[in-house]
């Protein structure tokens, strides 16, 4: 089957001092620096990595909320890279974003009804249909009809995230990019929202790109996982496989850094040296070589490419990962 979305060599570079006319071309933050992956219809692709590695920028570039610097986006077999104006607006119905911050992403002066029906209005849905849809959406995200006339500040964080989810479902999207949708929530509320997202996926046959830095959350929700480091993908594959036998040293370190599940668990820990390098001035060769416990001379000069490392299609970008060909 054809993938729903194909991302090919996507790049997004930001000039360092804002978009000043005088900033030289060279001073760029390579927030996303050539990532490629496919997303199949109905699956959840988890995108994980540390703060600043480019997850949100990747998500926003895919929706073209920020214009990609380079690369190709293919949606349902059609090249949408050059879509602008009306065509892109139409396409946006099918692709939605759920934000991390349920506080900042809701207009404080609008009622819940106005917030959720706004996208329907923009796409000229009839009033009666809007009302019907609103009730249905409130119901599926677990809010009550009497909430309609209230304002965002009257809700808890978990409820606001439900409102944001309802709004993003207003136009029956197919692809939903969830950017850290539960990171701002307390643990006891996190589980409610994760369960809700999973139920909605089943009911509406949604495809998710699920962005998070929490490795346990990503493990729970994803069918496949892509690991990012400094704007690049270092590993991608079936979630269970990546978690059980990570092939890239960064994935290995990341997974080993997760605190224990209980005090009896023996954990072999790879403690990485140093900090994340700046994405404005990333290391040459393999970007991970400054922190990699296995780095050798070749890592400092040559950039490793993605290669298949398991029979089921797990891929990793490391000179020393063993290639498996089927």
């Amino acid at each position: 089957m054809k993938p729903l979305l194909e991302v090919k060599n996507l790049k997004k570079h930001f000039p360092i001092n804002g978009t000043s006319l005088f900033s030289r071309n060279k001073d760029m933050v390579k927030a996303v620096d050539g990532i490629s992956f496919n997303v199949k219809a109905g699956e959840t692709l988890g995108l994980v990595g540390e703060s600043g590695c480019g997850k949100s920028t990747a998500g926003r570039s895919i929706l073209k909320l920020t214009e990609p610097t380079e690369g190709q986006l293919i949606y349902k077999g059609e090249d949408i890279t050059a879509f602008r104006g009306e065509r892109m607006r139409k396409l946006r119905q099918e692709m939605q974003l759920i934000f991390q911050d349920p506080y900042a992403s809701l207009n404080p002066r609008k009622t819940i009804e106005q917030i959720i029906t706004e996208p329907m209005k923009i796409f000229q849905m009839e009033k009666a249909a809007r009302k019907q849809k609103l009730d249905r959406l409130l119901d599926v995200v677990g809010l009550s009809s009497y909430h309609k006339s209230r304002y965002p500040h009257e809700f808890s964080g978990g409820q606001r995230q439900r409102i944001g989810i309802a709004r993003s479902l207003a136009l029956d999207p197919e692809l939903v990019i969830c950017d850290e949708p539960v990171s701002a929530l307390d643990v006891s509320i996190q589980a409610q929202v994760i369960n809700l997202l999973e139920e909605l996926q089943e009911e509406f046959k949604l495809t998710y790109i699920f962005i998070a830095h929490d490795l346990s959350v990503i493990h729970h929700i994803s069918d496949r996982v892509a690991v990012m480091y400094l704007g690049e993908l270092v590993e991608i594959g079936d979630a269970a496989e990546v978690y059980q036998s990570p092939k890239h040293p960064y994935t290995q370190a990341l997974l080993s850094a997760v605190p224990k599940v209980n005090p009896h668990q023996e954990k072999e820990r790879i403690i990485l040296k140093g900090d994340l390098p700046s994405p404005a001035n990333p290391p040459k060769g393999c970007k991970f070589h400054t922190r990699c416990p296995f780095a050798e001379a070749i890592c400092r000069s040559e950039k490793p490419t993605m290669k298949q490392v398991s029979l089921t299609g797990q891929m990793a970008a490391c000179h020393f990962a063993k290639e498996v060909v089927n």
Binding site: V187, S188, Q190, A191, Q192, N195, S216, I221
Partner: peptide
């Protein structure tokens, strides 16, 4: 117990998380 069950774990993959209902 509710907290322990509602947290996704890196060592096991459950079908559904057991959430605590309501809020503080």
């Amino acid at each position: 117990l509710g907290l322990m069950h509602s947290i996704p774990k890196i060592t096991e993959k459950k079908q559904k998380l057991e959430a605590i209902s309501g809020m503080p």
